[in-house]
């Protein structure tokens, strides 16, 4: 990789840090002062790669028919998507601190009728892949050539509906649909492998007729490489399993289910922001 490419990757890595800072800031400074930290922080690089490298979108025209679409099936991680949408210019950054407040356009889970840039409402786990499949088939109906991305949590693959959709996507030879699994290994009640083991996940997707590969979900160049592979293999639906750390970037949140969704006091907020700021500077 040449120097320019390195700079590009570094700029995206820095962007992911900025999104993390926004996540902690919006949750900590809203009137509600609580929200989904862990799964938002784990998805920062994935969301950055999608919005700043992979997806063809137009923040000035959120309803553009030819846009690529993202279904945030793990709807609880919406703080990191709100941060991305604000940074892309879909709405004013100042609105971020109204997350989960009464009257806000930023609901606790995605509401596409309220938030510009969201392609669907979501939040009830397990449904998003079906919605994304419908959008992907929509391209076939309209003759447009957009791509559809679905960001799933690992825990939600325990929902049977995910596999109904996975089966249907390959049956209908849907080649413009890509799943990214934020494989942070934790769900509300504990480690995924203890609550209900989903492994071997890659084999499962393959058995359902998908192409699949596993990458480091915090390494921008690995993610970009995975999306390059996806581009070159358009014969079937594609799943990227992104290995991540829940709560990534904040030492006391990492790999701790307590930080799936909770409140935060000023002291811890300050500590989290300082840690993330330090990472951003060193990126």
């Amino acid at each position: 990789m040449n120097i320019n490419a390195n700079e590009y990757v570094t700029s995206l890595q820095r962007k992911a840090c900025e999104l993390r800072l926004e996540v902690v800031d919006m949750i900590s400074n809203s009137d509600i002062r609580s929200g989904h930290f862990g799964g938002s922080l784990s998805a920062a690089e994935i969301v950055t790669a999608l919005y700043w490298h992979v997806m063809r979108v137009d923040p000035g025209n959120p309803a553009w028919e030819g846009r690529d679409r993202l279904v945030l099936s793990k709807g609880h991680a919406v703080p990191v998507v709100y941060a991305a949408l604000a940074h892309k210019g879909y709405f004013d950054r100042k609105i971020l601190r109204s997350y989960r407040e009464k009257g806000s356009i930023l609901q606790g889970h995605p509401d596409c009728l309220k938030t510009p840039g969201l392609d669907t409402s979501s939040g009830s786990l397990g449904q998003g892949l079906s919605l994304a499949l419908g959008m992907a088939l929509g391209a076939r109906q309209s003759g447009l050539d957009y791509q559809v991305y679905a960001l799933l949590s690992d825990g939600e693959t325990q929902e049977g509906m995910v596999w109904e959709a996975a089966m249907a996507a390959s049956h209908h030879k849907v080649s413009n649909l890509t799943v990214v699994v934020d494989n942070n290994g934790l769900q509300v009640d504990g480690p995924v492998q203890e609550i209900m083991n989903i492994e071997p996940l890659e084999d499962k997707f393959r058995a359902f007729g998908w192409n699949c590969l596993t990458v480091d979900g915090h390494d921008i160049s690995s993610l970009l490489a995975a999306f390059e592979v996806r581009k070159s293999r358009r014969d079937r639906p594609f799943a990227i399993i992104a290995k991540t750390v829940k709560g990534k970037g904040v030492s006391f949140m990492e790999n701790d289910i307590k930080w799936h969704c909770c409140g935060i006091d000023e002291e811890l907020c300050g500590k989290a922001m300082a840690q993330l700021e330090k990472i951003r500077r060193s990126a």
Partner: peptide, 14 residues
Amino acid sequence: QNTFGVASGLASTG
């Protein structure tokens, strides 16, 4: 479940 989820996605595209 998938059928009605797909219905939502398709409808979102017009």
